[in-house]
Design a protein around this nucleic acid. Structure first.
Lengths: 189, 189
DNA sequence: CTGAATTTTCAGTATTTTCTGAAAATATAG
DNA sequence: CTATATTTTCAGAAAATACTGAAAATTCAG
């Protein structure tokens, strides 16, 4: 590995973190490198920077592409494939969450629903079903909430997050608010 | 493994999911089993239910205890150690997030801060620092937001989540709102 | 087409992680 | 204290995962 120390630290850290999140070290490092790079990089440049085998890099790129975290780009008059990340960081967050939702949350909800449907035959099973239903409802609530956030444009989302729980203060006044905001432009809140 | 099919499905699914989240299959299954169980279980009961070795179960319990997901309990007139999960599901969510924050988010923020402090010597490094700063600020914003949510009592949090983005409609009226909510009980929003 | 450049695949090897049995440590009843 | 019940540790075996080089497939300029 032959990188400016400042970049190397980040790349290594990201590799380690990746392995705690079901992403292997190689893949984490490749992603980190691309994230920090102003221009897209080709596979040989990645090999040069990180010191993995060419085939390992190919596999890493394949995985990142499947996760929609990395996009193939082309440079005029160059036959090589170049790869880059989303430039907007919020798009990265959205992609990450969306992919996990599809691959993990949805299958889990499906599994839970089908178990809840079954007829329990012992008190033990009845209790377990209750717990699973509770989990199902929680996951569904969080998913729905997230889905709404997903649809919001970034700037509004950021404002809302910065606002934090102060917004809850507003919620307490929602009834009063309906009154003044009423009339021609009355809005359902 | 010798479990009612309805419970077994959940336990196996949870084990697989665990491995995508940096938790090993055994640990995931032990947790799932304890989650579904009305009474706390001892290590032998877990061995019996899941078919792992006694030592593997001991290690799994140790890990879950370190993550604060499982608590040691005792049953009168029984020398054995029993283990159970939080009974309130929101406590589980809070614990999960809090532990990841401590183990992953905080070290990452520390690393990013220290890199951002360094003096860049090339345009490449300067660009990379900019990206790292962007990431730092994003993580910090999400963490702060989460921290506020963390402090909220569960029922309020649930209301807020169910409310979803509708709350954003209120935000648009916050200036008007200050007017009516003013007077003796004026509140800063 | 042809052939050079490039990417992808894959079988085998290396590494890492998980799991086990046996032994050590700890706790407690008598 | 002693004996027994129980939990924990840990070195090595087993399994899973990651990585490589070589070969196959694909792409595209001429």
């Amino acid at each position: 590995m032959n990188l400016p120390p400042l970049i190397q630290t980040f790349v290594l850290h990201f590799g380690e973190m990746g392995s705690r999140w079901g992403i292997n070290r190689t893949v984490g490092q490749i992603y980190a490198l691309l994230y920090l790079s102003e221009q897209p990089l080709n596979a040989d440049q990645i090999v040069e920077a990180l010191g993995f085998s060419r085939s390992n890099v190919a596999m890493g790129i394949k995985e990142l592409t499947a996760m929609k975290l990395v996009k193939l780009k082309h440079i005029p008059n160059d036959r090589k494939d170049y790869y880059g990340t989303h430039e907007e960081i919020w798009d990265i967050v959205r992609t990450l969450i969306e992919e996990r939702r599809k691959r993990e949350v949805e299958p889990t909800l499906t599994m839970l629903r089908s178990i809840i449907m079954e007829q329990a035959t012992t008190p033990e099973e009845t209790f377990a079903q209750g717990k699973m239903e509770e989990m199902h409802d929680l996951i569904e609530m969080l998913t729905n909430w997230y889905q709404e956030m997903q649809e919001m444009e970034t700037q509004r989302l950021v404002n809302l997050l910065k606002m934090g729980t102060k917004i809850y203060g507003l919620y307490q006044f929602k009834d009063k608010l309906t009154v003044i905001s009423g009339g021609k432009n009355k809005e359902e809140i």
